[in-house]
Design a protein around this nucleic acid. Sequence first.
DNA 1: TCTCCGACTTCATTTAGATGAAGTGCTTCA
DNA 2: TGAAGCACTTCATCTAAATGAAGTCGGAGA
Lengths: 226, 226
Amino acid sequence: MSDQSVSSLCDYLCRVVYFEHLNPATIEYIAARLIPRRAVAGELLFVEGEPSAGLWLIQHGRVKFYKINPDGQEQILRLCGDGDTFNDIGAFDRGPNPANATALHDSRLFTLPTDFLCNLIQREPAFAQRVIEVLSSRLRLFTHQIENLTLYSVVVRVARFLLQQIENPSLSGPGVTRMAMAAHLSTTPQTISTVLRELESMGAIEFDRHHIRIVRDDLLRTIALL
Amino acid sequence: MSDQSVSSLCDYLCRVVYFEHLNPATIEYIAARLIPRRAVAGELLFVEGEPSAGLWLIQHGRVKFYKINPDGQEQILRLCGDGDTFNDIGAFDRGPNPANATALHDSRLFTLPTDFLCNLIQREPAFAQRVIEVLSSRLRLFTHQIENLTLYSVVVRVARFLLQQIENPSLSGPGVTRMAMAAHLSTTPQTISTVLRELESMGAIEFDRHHIRIVRDDLLRTIALL
DNA sequence: TCTCCGACTTCATTTAGATGAAGTGCTTCA
DNA sequence: TGAAGCACTTCATCTAAATGAAGTCGGAGA
């Protein structure tokens, strides 16, 4: 905890979904238990099936949480950024890691051990309540993901992904390459290229190698069938 | 509650994941709040986006929980049977129903209102703990589902589905037609037919219009890449 | 018992999107 | 400053699975 003041850690924790509405004393108590970790771009944080280290929190950086098949094909379940948490499942049910995680960019992270979290659930009903709400929202997210992947074409999926960027900054920026988008939307970088070109020719977006800018939000929304 | 004794309701509740380890007094308290419902085969129970009626429990029957796209194409998120619960998300986060539900077969059901469940979470830490565990396991399930749908071929998906039948009886039996299997595995009834024939010719299963029997568990497991 | 309808099967055809190959242009690191 | 390497683009080809059409089967209801 050497290089960070307790108060800055508390400021950070207050912006994490799980801890938002907790009282300052509890926040401080949690801050003292944060285990700081660092990762460089491309670093593997943990592997599916291994015992879980608990809940992971991102202070600053970008992380992909993903499954992989025997051919090496990847499915990114979630792209996470500043203030996000991941491996929630492994943290709360004491089971093994449900997927792999690697840093897409140099990152500063924390972990909180499962035992500590379970104690907190027992001691703080407000926290338990919050955990239930967050898990429900994750469930809702996965529900949408299954819907998108199975009921809509790649064009629709890409359009929806771009629209989500507006709310969720972890979906763009450093580390989120065409390859990552493809692995998240269950397609290939080539197809992403083609689709982006198509969206551009319709006048919905503008893009170059680095940025994708939404030109006509309404048109994109129509394409996304929203 | 007219036609069912309190003790038989309690016996039922003790077999539902959420209430397994609660003390008898609490179980009895919950039993008194169960709202009984009946449904005939094909009956729509609720629609995505509408306010949630709370948690649904199946006493006896079969229910599909699914998304639908503008073309009418269905994606079954979960097939539920005796003792299962559904609409957990809508029940715990006070949000709208995350998907549609219809009975696949004549069913006896219950609902428990959200307010009651939220109170219970506050009053019974053991229940809150259990809710967190169950939601985590649902999340794990969806994680697997996304993996199966995006990283494996239809043959593998069907093989895995058949293997799950052994543990989860709601995946077979009345109401679970080729159409339902197809909608769950994101494919078509025709493809299911072809794949079953293929699995039969390999000697892994035997089947007719009504039953699918696993002949060689080990072979099926190999095909499923497990 | 008969008939009708919906679920299932089979096969020929089509298609969305994957794959493979070839080339371009950043960006990093020597 | 140069070169290597990786991400990205484009296009031709291929393929898993969807679609459509036609026929079979079996159970429910008359």
